[in-house]
Amino acid sequence: MIPSDVCKAGLMTLLRVGGINSPERLEQTDILMAGGRITALGRDLDIPRGWPIHVVDAHHLIAVPAFIDQHVHVTGGGGEGGCGTRCPEITAREIASMGIGTVVGVLGTDSISRSPADLLAKVRGLGAEGISAFMYTGAYRVPPPTLTGDIQRDLAWIPEVIGLGEIAISDHRSSQPRQDEIERIVSDTRVGAMLAGKRGICHFHIGDGKRGLEPLRRLLSETEIPADQVIPTHVNRYAALLEEAADYALAFNATVDVTAFEDAGDGLSAFDAVSRLLARGVPPELITMSSDCNGSLPEFDTNGTYLGMKVAKNTTLIADWQRLVREGVLPLESALGLISTNVARVLGLHARKGRIATGFDADVTLLDSELQPQQTFVAGQCVYDVRTTE
């Protein structure tokens, strides 16, 4: 029976599915969602007569936590080749069609024609369209551009701001921040987040420069900053950097983020990168995957001269993730961590996202037998249904 204390006011949704991975496999096959939360899990839940419940019959599908993409250029990235090379904004449909319910927006190289205010407006726009959206304050450069003029105030007063990023290091496009500057902005982020009751991670873009992860290794070795405050991304940019990332993860018990490059070029695909990290003994709990979608994939010559670019998509993220499961690199419950549970923990959202459990946000993705998203629910509302978009 549905618990008697479930609120009877307003529309509720009952998903009847073929199975639930929370990410671990559950015995229940019914998910009741109301008020944006999961209110009950069970088998063959009875529906009291007169209750305003919408029933979704999806016995042929598997329910998993809606995916979380922690690195999305929601306003578009690019610009390295001039104004004509700015990437387009991403749409809510493009996000939800990949089973993604939550995104974190970032600025990149261009924080001149695009600003934190633009990013906040886009994040709120995605929220109005049903996507759970957050943002990092800052961009590639140091000092980071902010909304209020101060990192700590951004974290304290702007609900959507959950950290700082993406700060570029080991890259010719970065502002070449000194070690003390890196330490200062990470410390400011940590204190601002503490005052706001947030995790306040610092999301670092790692380029193909020779310093690699050295600035972050020094940060964690020479200061009191905990490892979970710092997330390096693009660590699969080239093979030697991935090896360094494995050493970094193991030495500091730190999470590293793999990018699902559409065209890996000299780098490694997300599939290959995750496989190699696991082979090196990095626990799957310390690995996350993100798309970098709608960011630019610029090409430069050895002198740093711009040659051309492509626009990243989030389709590669899901394809590489599916391949990890299909080829047996990870079982489904562990693989889900890479794009849901682990990411929720990294972002400090683990008390409400990344699991299918009573009291958690009703963010649920329904997958078919090929692990292809068929429906995506965010806060209990269907924001994508393959049947209505084909």
Rank of each mutant, 00 (worst) to 15 (best):
L164D: 10
G76Q: 07
M33C: 07
V343C: 08
L213V: 07
H205G: 10
T341P: 02
G209Y: 05
L195P: 01
E222Y: 01
I53S: 00
P159K: 14
A273N: 02
N303M: 15
S221V: 00
D154G: 09
D266G: 11
R217Q: 11
G348N: 09
R199H: 15
V191L: 12
D361Q: 02
P144S: 08
Q322W: 04
V55E: 13
Y140L: 10
P144E: 06
L26D: 01
R276G: 10
M289A: 02
G200M: 12
V311Y: 12
D301C: 14
G125T: 07
G10Y: 08
L371W: 10
A92L: 02
S221R: 14
A245V: 12
A133H: 11
Q28P: 01
G380T: 09
V106G: 08
T259Y: 03
S113E: 08
F67L: 15
G354D: 02
E160S: 14
L41C: 07
A344I: 06
R184W: 10
Y136S: 09
G18M: 03
G18N: 05
A251I: 07
E27V: 12
E94Y: 04
C87N: 03
T315V: 11
V74G: 00
V104I: 11
V329S: 11
R173A: 11
V343T: 12
G308T: 00
G125P: 03
D385A: 12
P65L: 06
P284E: 13
S115K: 09
F377R: 04
E262T: 06
E24Q: 13
I38M: 14
V274F: 09
C83H: 12
S296R: 12
N303E: 15
V161M: 09
T389A: 13
G36V: 03
K210S: 15
N294G: 08
M33K: 05
R199D: 03
L45H: 04
I68W: 04
R352A: 14
G380S: 05
I47R: 15
T302D: 13
L307W: 04
A92G: 00
M1N: 11
R49C: 15
L366Q: 02
M98C: 10
P88W: 08
D118N: 15
H71G: 03
K8M: 08
L286D: 06
Y306L: 12
I68K: 06
I231P: 04
G79K: 00
V106P: 01
P144Y: 13
S113G: 13
A351I: 00
C83T: 12
P373Q: 01
I62E: 02
V311C: 15
S275E: 10
Q375L: 11
G130E: 03
G348W: 05
R141V: 14
Q381D: 08
S221E: 10
S97E: 14
I20F: 01
L61A: 03
C202K: 02
R141Y: 02
Q322R: 13
I100T: 09
N21I: 05
L278E: 07
A245P: 10
L332H: 10
L41Q: 09
L242V: 13
Q28R: 09
V74T: 09
